[in-house]
Design a protein around this nucleic acid. Sequence first.
RNA 1: GGAGGGGUGGCCGAGUGGUUGAAGGCGUCCCGCUUGAAACGGGAUGACCGCAAGGUCCGUGGGUUCGAAUCCUACCCCCUCCGCCA
Length: 444
Amino acid sequence: MLDPKYVREHVETVEAGLRSRGVTLALQEFLAADLARRRLLSEVEQLKHRRNTASEEVGQRKRQGRDAGELIAEMRELGDRIKKLDEEVRGCDEHIEAFLMGLPNLPHPSVPVGGDSTANVEMRRRGEPRRFDFPARPHWEIGEALGLLDFERAARMSQARFVVLTGAGARLERALINFMLDLHTREHGYTEVFPPLLVNAAAMTGTGQLPKFAEELFKTKDESLYMIPTAEVPVTNLHREEILPPGTLPLSYVAFTPCFRREAGSHGKDTRGLIRQHQFNKVELVKLTQADRSYEALEQMTRDAEAVLQRLGLPYRVVVLCTGDLGFAAAKTYDIEVWLPSQSASPKESGTHADAVGARGIGGYREISSISNCEAFQARRADIRYRPAPTAPVEYVHTLNGSGVAVGRAWLAILENYQEADGSVRIPEALRPYMDGQERIGKP
RNA sequence: GGAGGGGUGGCCGAGUGGUUGAAGGCGUCCCGCUUGAAACGGGAUGACCGCAAGGUCCGUGGGUUCGAAUCCUACCCCCUCCGCCA
């Protein structure tokens, strides 16, 4: 949520910021409701003041055995008036709140302006895309041939966009999870968390999934709990409604969880393979920082996520998302995109990676991690504050989250990048300790 | 699932329908004493809205009342015992 006071005082800036994100709306509605609310409030507060002093007077008279009937009669009328005004104020509050809850965050000034992903700006590339001297195959072909994954059986017991991993495939998944958790906890200073996978509506509202994006979530029928679409939700909400004492920040958490997404509106997109599933594993990074430290934390978190790909020897690039491509809660986002030989250059992404050419298909970069600074947007919704110094007034924390990284996409990136002409897959050095030293996955 | 108990400030904990935003304690901060520290003494110490005056907040919502932390009601959450269970 945006700061109502800031919105009131910077209407033009806010409208411009929203416009750059593709949200065109006038704040007229908000300003009117806000003004009405403040008028009503000052009126009702005056009445309440009178009621308070009169109540005191009644008490005094009664104690002295004097009559208070007249005053009481007068107050009865006042009480009705107050009740009515209170209701009107509440109406305004709800209106204002509903309006603000539907607004996305404002982009940071450093974010490039643009309408869609073609305006994203590449920051850097690491690693050379491999040149294959044989026809490189997509991961679903490699995986099925090696008996690592099974979409058919998954669909039979579940639905499309689910998968069963078996044997070395399941093990590779587990190895990746452990590798990432160990890296972030041992070397990057994150505290490991294993949170609930079902959360209530308040938590979803805190991070911004609700009220606007309910159609993306799986929801339980009888309890009103939602399955998390990312660990960002429970982990960011870890400190909801808290005031963190001085010296607590920054807090850095890493969580491995499954994630569940309806993928409504993605029909026909990425239908083959592991890229887009209803259920997938992710290692998520979350930081809570002081308000003046969040942008250095964003850079650090991006480096922490990049380290995963570097250790795995996967080529990638980092892009900064333009205003039009930002997520709802984010003020600034870096995407890390891994190079996949199976990806064809979609029109949206062309121009920046067409030079990465494999033996078959052109190959392309595909998102494997997204790292965002939400500033105080989520903290305001989830009411997460801190005290900068023992006697200082409280402030909202800044929240950041980023994948460190998406496990399923790392899994398929390894299959595609480490495939051999004979159909086997080499295991990156960094993962071998997690695979009992196994160097290669071959035909069983 | 059955029976009972309870939700008050950063924490513990009092609270008769009328100076209780809330005693007392702990913690924290400032001052004094001290070479320093501890101990001790004094003072301060919630959040939200508001320029301020002032208003709001005792799990949440509704109700009774001139007036509710205190009475009624619905809901949520926590705890204990029994049953069941990974």
